[in-house]
Design a protein around this nucleic acid. Structure first.
Lengths: 358, 358
DNA sequence: CGGGTGATAGAAAGCGCTTTCTGAATCGTG
DNA sequence: CACGATTCAGAAAGCGCTTTCTATCACCCG
């Protein structure tokens, strides 16, 4: 059917071993021989049989990418830049393939896909998205990651905290400074004069949720130790979807506790919050300021444009790709924290002079 | 290292062949034996070695998904629902893995990734996104697809026209009624009273561009045969990014040809157009109406909410997954056209009474 | 000028599965 | 009750690579 390595070898007048060696390098092959083999490969249009190679080498060209859901822009951008960075010189010289798996953040799904990827002898794995902070899951995940990494498979944790693992393993973590971003965002709101700041946090038990909330609270406390207490009843947990932000905001409104600003766990939730406020006849930012997190592309086009915290997703994806392919050495200590940046736009402004409306 | 099939066989007291048969079915295995094997698999936590299986069976569990760019919501949603639908009963029983490849719509990239996927013995391929309508590329693509399909690999074309291929091949096409959608959108604008309608088309030579433009024009012509001529100077081609829409609109404005509405090739371009209009001090929709295409999630949150045409991306992804896995038989004729739906929102309204502003 | 010493290339043994091809029971039936 | 038909399980031959291990040259130095 397809051209095999043996055919290439025959045409070049060498042994299969030699062809394998020019293909994989790491072994001396004389210039003339190499040229002849390359010519034969070219002539025959040889493309390696991935499974055969993976079986023999016990490692494949597959790179597993676990995301909550690629349909979500956050993960789409991350996965997209990662995939593109896997073939830095363009698709024509691509070799590693990205296997993307939607886990919805569910621990069992992560474990299941990791098992599958291990079965596929994936040459690397990138785990993205906030992690469930459940000891049982963390242990199970750590065990699985240890196994894979011990087998020489690089594992990159991206946007989630490091796992408790032995140091020598090829595991690296790329984090976002979520805490710092949330801190600066809250500072921004405080500087504008807001004191009753509602916060729509992500699902409880998720690392991202905790980090962002922690940064937010830290800023409140720093400004005024009593503020966190005042704002506590204005803090709710919700999912990461727009509808969750909408519902959470309605709930907040229903409670009757006044607030002049609402910060959300991410941009999507923030748009839901903004919609709920609008539907309640509340003007943004004149009556209530709204802020998101992530700086997804749509933020500049909402009405008004959303103040948010930029998370360097493209950079993270590209970095993860370099780390997982070994094109960039794993940093000592294994942890890289990427900076986040406050993006002030139209959805935040000073609180109304006459007091809060809701 | 990992548990092998032979170990499972030993534990169950059967031959490897038998284990393979209970794993793959299609061959009678007595109830008792099957139970014993399943128990052994469970006990040992056996996970099949993908490459070995793929090598022996000459087909892998990989499904190639070619997209222009997963970072783009259009493709992210398509790929996301496709990936999720690959494991209908949840990730724990997933078997097929989605390999997503960003091609940027480039013909060479599509060919390169297809070669790679063929080398990986992919068990199916889904080609999404508008296709370059270049005869050379179409022929090369058709050749490659024929080869793969002839080898029993289902190929699904999604959102692009069918390829000229023999009928018996396992190839199916899932199209969107782009033309109909564009037609109805233009009708909507015409019904509102617009006559000078600008159109920011996609890149020339792309099937999607042609279809949408054709539908748009057909509506103009149907309404008034002279209208297409009037609007011709108001039609420009641009890329699919927001910036392209912004620039194209500025260019349109600079030309001085008045218009009261602008329809864009997609939502992203439309937001760029809207931004350019806003920056020029033009009110939407009071002075100029704006419409997009695709109905990406952010459409409801722009200012004003974007009138657009809904493209059933999730449905298409799920359908493609079913077709490519053989869970749903390929339709006779191979072509399925999914309906599109006009979504009227705030960005379109009647043209200004006093004539057009630009 | 002979035996180390590198530098290259080939032979061959798998990697862990699938899948014929056989073989041995078990069954139904005249 | 004997014989072919049927059902189930095992033996073994690969699938197309990688990778030791081995073999062959050329050299080079004493």
């Amino acid at each position: 059917m397809a051209v095999t390595l043996a055919e290439v070898a025959a045409r070049a007048g060498v042994s299969p071993a030699t062809v394998s060696r020019v293909l994989n390098g790491g072994y001396p092959v004389a210039g003339g021989t190499r040229t002849r083999v390359e010519q034969a490969i070219e002539d025959l249009g040889y493309v390696a049989n991935g499974p055969a190679r993976a079986l023999a080498a016990a490692t494949s060209d597959l790179v597993g990418v676990l995301v909550h859901d690629v349909a979500d822009s956050f993960f789409g951008i991350l996965a997209g830049s990662l995939q593109s960075a896997l073939a830095p010189a363009g698709p024509s010289d691509a070799r590693r393939l990205a296997v993307v798996c939607n886990t919805q953040g569910a621990p069992e799904a992560e474990l299941a896909y990791l098992a599958l990827l291990e079965g596929q002898r994936a040459g690397g794995v990138v785990l993205t998205g906030g992690a469930a902070e459940d000891p049982g899951h963390t242990a199970a995940l750590a065990a699985r990651v240890t196994r894979m990494a011990a087998g020489g498979v690089p594992v990159i944790l991206c946007g989630r905290p490091p796992l408790p693992l032995p140091d020598e393993l090829p595991v690296a973590t790329v984090m976002f400074d979520d805490r710092g971003g949330a801190f600066r965002l809250a500072e921004h709101l405080l500087a504008l004069g807001h004191r009753r700041i509602a916060y729509i946090a992500g699902p409880p038990g998720l690392s991202t949720t905790r980090e962002r909330l922690a940064g937010h609270r830290a800023a409140l406390v720093r400004h005024d130790p009593g503020l966190a207490g005042i704002c506590a009843p204005l803090t709710v947990h919700a999912g990461f979807e727009r509808a969750a932000g909408y519902d959470a905001t309605r709930e907040l409104l229903r409670r009757g506790e006044p607030f002049t600003a609402v910060a959300a766990a991410n941009d999507t939730v923030a748009t839901g919050a903004a919609a709920a406020l609008r539907d309640a006849g509340i003007r943004i930012p004149e009556e209530v300021s709204v802020a998101g997190f992530d700086d997804l592309p749509f933020c500049v086009d909402t009405a008004p444009a959303l103040t948010t915290v930029r998370v360097p997703l493209r950079e993270a994806g590209a970095l993860a790709a370099q780390l997982v392919t070994g094109r960039r050495p794993l940093p000592p200590g294994g942890l890289t924290t990427l900076p986040t940046e406050l993006m002030v736009r139209g959805s935040t402004g000073p609180p109304p002079a006459g007091g809060s409306r809701p």
